[in-house]
């Protein structure tokens, strides 16, 4: 090809023309990267995102001349779902300082899957609360780590202050069928809660 590329591109099947995007989020070390890797058909890639000091995702460089910027890497993977459709999963960090970055990613996303570790439930409060503030629909998936405590669903719902219709599933981010089921839980929920504009 003449000019060097950073990696070998894995092109999409030639008939694919629609791309859906789902965010996989959650606190530090909750299994976001593992989850994306488990579902991806390609070796997960890492984007380089430019953020302003204030944490805003830089979308158009024209607006930021003279501002101090910093970069953050976001893992993502892809799974072809049919002849015409591909799903992209972005593992977006849940920490507060990434909130504006998150809003940028939420644009055009179907929804978010929030991974939760029952050994560190308190670390998930902010993530769930923030999703509640954003208009992005979400489902919660407990990524069950070995030796982590198991709680009844109603206790978890109460601890995380979930709305009654927010889906709560358990998954193992290392296991494909289990991770697929978690995403299905989210998309089922999205179909049930379609905005009124779509009859």
């Amino acid at each position: 090809m003449g000019s060097a590329l950073s990696s070998d591109p894995a092109y999409l099947p030639p008939t694919v023309r629609r791309a859906a995007k789902i965010l996989v989020t959650g606190h530090f070390a909750v299994g976001k990267t593992t989850f994306v890797r488990t579902l991806s058909e390609i070796e997960p890639l890492r984007t380089e995102e430019v953020m302003t000091r204030a944490g805003e995702l830089v979308d158009d460089l024209a607006g930021v001349e003279g501002k101090t910027t910093t970069t953050v890497a976001i893992d993502f993977g892809r799974r072809t779902l049919s002849d015409t459709l591909v799903l992209y999963l972005f593992g977006t960090p849940g920490q507060d300082r990434f909130v504006h970055l998150w809003e940028g990613f939420a644009h055009g996303a179907l929804g978010a899957l929030v991974l939760v570790d029952t050994r560190r439930l308190a670390d998930s409060f902010d993530v769930v609360a923030r999703l509640e503030d954003m208009a992005l629909p979400y489902a919660v998936a407990v990524n069950h780590f070995d030796g982590a405590p198991r709680y009844p669903d109603d206790e978890l719902r109460q601890a995380l202050d979930l709305l009654p219709d927010t889906p709560l599933v358990t998954c193992d981010a290392r296991d494909r069928p289990s991770s697929v089921r978690a995403v299905i839980g989210l998309v089922d929920h999205l179909l049930l809660h379609l905005p009124q504009e779509h009859p």
């Binding site: 859906a20 799974r79 779902l81 459709l85 799903l87 179909l191």
Partner: peptide, 16 residues
Amino acid sequence: AGAPSPQLLKDVLDGL
């Protein structure tokens, strides 16, 4: 932005 179509969601679900 905003609302994915029911068709897109159904196709994602079928694919999953």
